[in-house]
Design a binder for these strands. Structure first.
Lengths: 147, 147
DNA sequence: GTCATTTAGATTGCGCGCAATATAATTGTG
DNA sequence: CACAATTATATTGCGCGCAATCTAAATGAC
């Protein structure tokens, strides 16, 4: 395919990393439409999912679950607080720690969010089997390279 | 695993999209070290690979190959120009179009970059087969959802 | 040729993602 | 108890990623 490049190793079309990178961007892009209704970005949606599953956890615990550091979580959580979806309160036992409490509005958003996984699964071009396979490969990759 | 969430659909641990997203971020992060020596970010490295394979192409053609729009490519290419790796020249036949010409420095960077795919492949936790599988799934996903 | 349409690229604005650093609270050590 | 080390979060700065908008050049329709 490539005329000027005799070795294929530096060719983006051959690199699984580039495919991974592009697919992730495309995925986030396709979530945008679905999340417009909830007024959430994809990373914000991830944070909300964590809190819907486990309200009241610390910033640190949430950061570990979504694999983000405080440079990403702090401003993101401030934006969610600004939208009135949660409150950030200092932990009494450990004043360093900051606990995240969903507001009523934040909790009520969960019911509207139930549609998101359904609609995304519907428009996914992958079968359930392929999706599971993709997940397993991505998990293996992430776990090993960030170790 | 989750105590407060009786349905699994809104749980990030079950979502292949979250795995894809996290794996892509981890991958870019792991490239950072390898690319430090070349003074390139991962997206800049992608652009350079395209130009190493096909010097002189337009901004539009490059954007299509790396799947980025002008809001991303324009500042990225200006940074590469600022580093002295390429020049952006208006096309004589079509003044709207902007052609990208590698400088000698930009061309010579290719030889040093040959090490990158090798070292990344070495530290990859995936077998060649798994990597191919991941690429196929990502390509299928991206092609269909951005159609 | 005139004018609407299309096209290539640039600009603006916002939200990540993350390295590096700072701050303040807590814990560990002697 | 003093004080070094650790820990949780916040801040700063930079480079994407992309929607929305703008400009200017080229193309198409009549």
């Amino acid at each position: 395919m490539s005329q000027e490049n005799n070795d294929a190793s530096l060719c983006i079309e051959n690199q699984s990393c580039f495919s991974l990178y592009s697919a992730a961007n495309a995925m986030v892009r396709s979530y945008r439409t679905a999340l417009l209704d909830l007024d959430l970005t994809y990373p914000q949606y991830l944070a909300m999912m964590v809190l819907w599953a486990e309200d009241g956890i610390s910033v640190k615990a949430l950061g570990e679950k979504v694999h983000m550091d405080s440079g990403t979580t702090t401003p993101l959580l401030k934006r969610l607080e600004g939208k009135g979806l949660l409150e950030r309160v200092r932990c009494k036992q450990d004043e360093r720690s900051c606990l995240l409490q969903l507001t009523d509005e934040g909790k009520s958003l969960k019911s509207r969010a139930q549609e998101i996984p359904k609609s995304m699964a519907c428009q996914s071009p992958l079968t359930q089997e392929e999706s599971d396979q993709l997940k397993a490969l991505c998990d293996k990759l992430r776990l090993k390279i960030s170790a």
